[in-house]
Design a protein around this nucleic acid. Structure first.
Lengths: 201, 201, 201, 201
DNA sequence: GATGAATGAGATTTCATTCAT
DNA sequence: GATGAATGAAATCTCATTCAT
């Protein structure tokens, strides 16, 4: 692992645990076992590190999602695959994912108008994949035809993010949680008695 | 509104927008229109403010949840009521809720061992209410009997938290979102063909 | 005890323990069980309290010294009486004496040019009494005739101050210490073989 | 002189003059001609500076005392040597010695329980050397055999400390003072008519 | 590339003092 | 007399960043 990667790993761990703003570069340097100056040699600034982490994780998460999405035949299959991928990815990238959840858009919405675009776009792009999922499922009949794509995508992505966030508090078994979340969604999304929802109000 | 409340309101708004660590007390003082020193007169320290916000919002959220939970006859009704309450509460307390989601346990897990208990316990207690909800629904037959209470509670709470978190990015219509989330959950939780879940794998 | 006296007592105790600069008025108010504002009602400022303590203790110490000095027939008697009085006084006024030792001239030399005079004059006046003691003893033959008044006074006063100061660290029995100090001085000051001092170098 | 030493020198001078608590770090930085931040780069905190000064001066004073003590043949010689060393040391380290006298145990007794040990132990160790001095002199007959080691050590050390402290007020000639103090002690400690002390009461 | 001393702006906190009640 | 809210200046300390080596 190169020095740059060491720094990145240290920063990811610390950002995930304490948040971006609450993590001093000195702590990163110490954790990585390098001089503080070296951080600024590789990444121009502190936000530079965050951006690097976010770009990397977003890129990998996104391409993973896209790959699963495209390899599925039905919308339902895609839903299963994407949820599965989320937890799978989260198992190996807990910290990076946490940074994504924690500090986007926190550190970006206000502070960093220009970079804002890039990063929160990551979240937005994922949302779009979910939207396409719902749409496809509605078309191919594997999902209920009365699901509003935008809002449903929102609910599912919210659920995944929220669960990952919650895992900071109570550490439940990931694989069982993954199964539960998948079943939960499938039952909610699969076609059934179409007059069901009228009950909800 | 007393000075103390003014400060609290200003802090809540700023913490929600920028995060706890990224909000200087000077900004709070300015926003509240008071001298910076007054903040420390009322709240001993900066975390003192956060703690006060968290205690307050947790207390109100929890008592709201409990009230709904107890006034419902079936587990299903309770689920509907609690989700409804979440979005209702979130409409009037967007900022406070966001602070709760954002900075617990972030600022607490490490830094504040003693206070840690109180604050993250808030989250834990909410989880417990959800757990009781599921258990009740299983008993009274209004919810599927194969739902693992703990994990299901986790999934639902995660969903609610995640959705509120996401609303920072894309501001969708809350009431429609609330309906969608409720329907989503009801479909997922209501008794149906009990062999459904076998499909998921 | 009036409120004013209560404040004075609290301040004396805290100044003695922590020093003037390191004692906040809030601590004094708390210790005295009064509102902070009351301190400024009675004493115009924080230094006002110190001045009040110093004037009081200096005045009582000085008048005590003068009384003993004048009631003695020989210089030697005066030395005994003054040392005895120092420890006697210090037993009942440990804190006040400590403040005198600790914060004069510390808080005065630089900060308080105008008040400077009064306070350090207290110390100076005590020194003068000792000087007169030596002079008298030289004249009446009860003390060695080769003692330089100024320096000897300095040595004795330094000794008394230093011992009181040291008592903060190791708390030895005061009465025994008093006896020892008195004997020590008497042996040093009493006429003896006048060629003694040549040995010292 | 390194930057660190420059800071240390500046701090020593200012602490000696104004006391620890009354000296802001900004003043130290200004006096040393460095950025205020550098102080905290080298010494973790303000007390860090004080501790560093105290350790240094205690260490040098102690080792000086020990060296003299061991190179003397009789207890009397040791007394002479130690007093001489005190004034000699005080001439070259006036400020550091003043800090030692002034702010130990002032800043330590309460505030710094853990470090307390180290620093006030310095004083204690010096006291022990004096104790050994007396004991040796009693054994070898160069000092009175009726001197209680502990209390006598206390009186002498108190004297030396007090004189150094007093020198802040009236600046007398050091070498003459040193001679006077030495003679004073010698006369008080040397064997003489052993019934002398009965006179004191 | 790599270090860590050095900076200076700014963050949190303290505190003497004032003032309305 | 008595309170304690309120202030604002200043104190301690943090931290991203630069730069000489």
């Amino acid at each position: 692992m190169s020095r740059k990667e060491t720094i990145l790993a240290a920063a990811t761990a610390l950002f995930a645990r304490n948040g971006f703003s609450a993590t001093p570069t000195s702590a990163i340097a110490k954790e990585a076992g390098v001089a503080e100056g070296l951080i600024f040699h590789y990444f121009k600034s502190k936000v530079g590190i965050l951006l690097c982490i976010l770009e990397d994780v977003t890129e990998r998460y996104l391409s993973g999602c896209r790959a699963r999405f495209e390899n599925c035949r039905t919308g339902l299959d895609a839903v299963k695959a994407l949820i599965g991928f989320h937890f799978e990815f989260g198992t190996e990238n807990t910290d990076a994912l946490l940074v994504l959840i924690r500090d986007v858009p926190g550190s970006f919405c206000q502070n960093l108008a220009p970079t804002n675009q890039n990063s929160s776009n990551g979240m937005y792009k994922i949302l779009c994949i979910w939207e396409k999922c719902i749409e496809r499922g509605r078309r191919d009949g594997s999902l209920r035809h009365d699901l509003p794509p935008r809002e449903t995508a929102f609910v599912i992505q919210g659920m995944l993010i929220g669960i990952s966030r919650l895992r900071l508090l109570a550490s439940l078994d990931v694989s069982f949680l993954s199964t539960q979340a998948t079943d939960f969604c499938i039952r909610a999304l699969r076609p059934g008695a179409e007059n069901e929802q009228t009950i909800s109000k």
